[in-house]
Design a protein around this nucleic acid. Structure first.
Length: 496
RNA sequence: GGCGACGUAGCCAAGUGGUAAGGCAGAGGUCUGCAAAACCUUUAUUCGCCGGUUCGAAUCCGGCCGUCGCCUCCA
């Protein structure tokens, strides 16, 4: 079974074949670290985390590079705009690099919570200014960029292929109603490779053209090239950046270094909140932290990070994801169903009731059917909704087996657990290695205390003292521990 | 103005030519001391609307209506 990927360059699904067999180079546009990570980041980086994980599942050695944008790009258009990081630094009265450091840490913290595996390299734009200056110089030497004042602009007219990713016709770009004419540009379509710093600009570096800072497309071009070489296999990012950012990355790279830039372009679609665009300017921005704490007017409750991840994976990455409180609540239930079964299997496994290590042959058939369906789904452009559908069918089969009143061998339980760990854990990242009690350091003590209560209740039930047994159950439920009486004893799980 | 995406059951969401996955919610049943969980059955003769192509279309083509987005920093 071969992996097929929708390539935005060709606007078609293509068979994926890396340039160097067995190895994949992947670059994904990273965050600008001047604010907390929001839902858009969650969708984008969970998407490419899935790509990363599935490629490794397929046996590829992947090098995943994702930049940290920490040089100031402009808030507005034109020369008068303020540098975003500089602006935040001024507001918080700290050094720009403190802003960068603070939000970079928050970013990784939030991504860790969402079980997004870290990239192999997280290069910072500020650490690659010489490379960006070099890019500008090469473009000037090649006749694809020019100096105007202390700015360096890429000349779109000099590069006929400009527009090949976004399918915009270069000739028509001028008609864009909102393109403002920048006085230093020879052509309004041109974009900055290097910008002159205004006196108040906090982040600036020396260059052959004076004090300034890199244009906002330059870092991706030079860092992808530096760490992956050209061309590299996969370039990922958000669809809203297809133009001008991604388009300009390509043009710069191909004009400066020749050859192709990236071979497969994967772009995730955007998120909306209650059906409309999320954005700072819309005033409906929703941070990952707000989602996890429930501290937002549109949310009725906090949502667990795994629920959020499950929710994002329940629609395809090239579709928009609409965040609504109702949809998240439904996802919570669905996820609980899944994880409840996994937890039960692990509890049964821990008891070692049946040490038979053979695997039920009938289950083996269910399992291999599931793996086939799962892989087929993932092979068709990372179709996680289909993969999840297969997982739920597998889950139902597992529930049937473990509730069958027939003894289930340890071998079968281990095979079930292994399947969950492989596909639900390693590939989808929604089934953690440890679930049961989810209670931090005191887990051992907590487990013991709950078990004492469960045993007391069992004794009460034996005496048909249901007033006592129900009181124990109700009060535990109130405390967040739900009991389930099963033929083989009482199972419990912590719900908060 | 230019470009693009989407419209599938009450809700979320797969499916791109062969007769509608999965999840949530609802209904009935099994199990249970009662629950919970789980399992079984059930819930779209139909995929925004109107035409066309085809033996056959949610899927292709044309038109219309509606929603959202990009073109400006944004994942």
């Amino acid at each position: 079974m071969t992996l097929r990927i929708y390539n935005y360059l060709s606007r078609q699904e293509e068979t994926f074949e890396p340039l160097h067999p067995g190895f994949v180079g992947m670059y994904v546009c990273g965050p600008t670290v001047y604010g907390d990570a929001h839902l858009g980041h969650a969708k984008a980086y969970i998407t490419f985390d899935i790509v990363h994980r599935y490629l490794e599942y397929k046996g590829y050695k992947v090098r995943y590079v994702q930049n940290i944008t920490d040089v100031g790009h402009l808030v507005g258009d034109g020369d008068e705009g303020e540098d975003k990081i500089g602006k935040q630094a001024r507001m918080e009265q700290v050094e720009p690099m403190e802003i960068v450091e603070y939000y970079t840490r928050n970013y990784f913290r939030d991504m860790d919570l969402l079980n997004v595996r870290r990239p192999d390299i997280s290069p910072r734009a500020s650490g690659h200014v010489p490379e960006q200056i070099e890019l500008a110089q090469i473009l000037i030497d090649e006749g694809h960029a020019y100096v105007s004042g202390s700015n360096v602009y890429f000349s779109v007219a000099s590069w006929p292929a400009y527009g090949k990713l976004s399918r915009r016709k270069v000739d028509e770009l001028e008609e864009g109603a909102r393109l403002e004419v920048d006085s230093d540009k020879r052509d309004p379509r041109d974009f900055a490779v290097w910008r002159a710093a205004t006196p108040g600009h906090l982040m600036q570096w020396n260059s052959p053209w004076g004090q300034g800072f890199p244009g906002w497309h330059a870092e991706c071009t030079v860092m992808a090239r530096k760490y992956l070489g050209l061309p590299f296999d996969i370039h990922g990012g958000g669809l809203e950046n297809i133009f001008p950012h991604n388009e300009s990355e390509i043009a710069q790279s191909e004009a400066a270094y020749g050859g192709d830039f990236a071979r497969y372009w994967l772009l995730n679609n955007m998120v909306t909140i209650d059906g409309t665009k999320m954005g700072k300017s819309q005033g409906n921005s929703l941070n990952i932290q707000q989602l996890l704490t429930g501290d937002h007017p549109r949310l009725s409750q906090p949502y667990g990070p795994m629920t959020v991840r499950y929710f994002i994976l329940s629609s395809h990455y090239r579709q928009t994801t609409d965040f609504t409180d109702d949809a998240l609540s439904a996802a919570t239930r669905g996820y609980e169903r899944l994880i409840g079964t996994v937890g039960l299997v692990r509890q049964m496994l821990a008891r070692q009731d049946n040490v038979d290590s053979t695997v039920d042959p009938q289950f083996e058939g269910v399992r291999s059917d599931f793996i086939t369906r799962f892989e087929e789904a993932m092979n068709s452009d990372f179709n996680t909704p289909q993969a999840l559908a297969a997982l739920f069918d597998f889950n139902r089969a597992v529930n049937t087996i473990i509730n069958s009143q027939q003894p289930v061998s340890n071998g079968t339980l281990e095979a079930i657990d292994e399947t969950y760990r492989q596909l639900g854990g390693n590939v989808l990242g929604i089934i953690p290695d440890e679930i049961s009690t989810q209670s931090g350091g005191s887990a051992g003590l907590e487990d013991s205390l709950i078990q004492i209560l469960v045993d007391l209740r069992a004794a009460a039930r034996k005496n048909k003292d249901y007033a006592i047994s129900d009181a124990i159950r109700d009060q535990l439920a109130e405390a967040g521990v739900v009991l389930e009486d099963r033929p083989d004893g009482t199972a419990w799980k912590i719900t908060r």
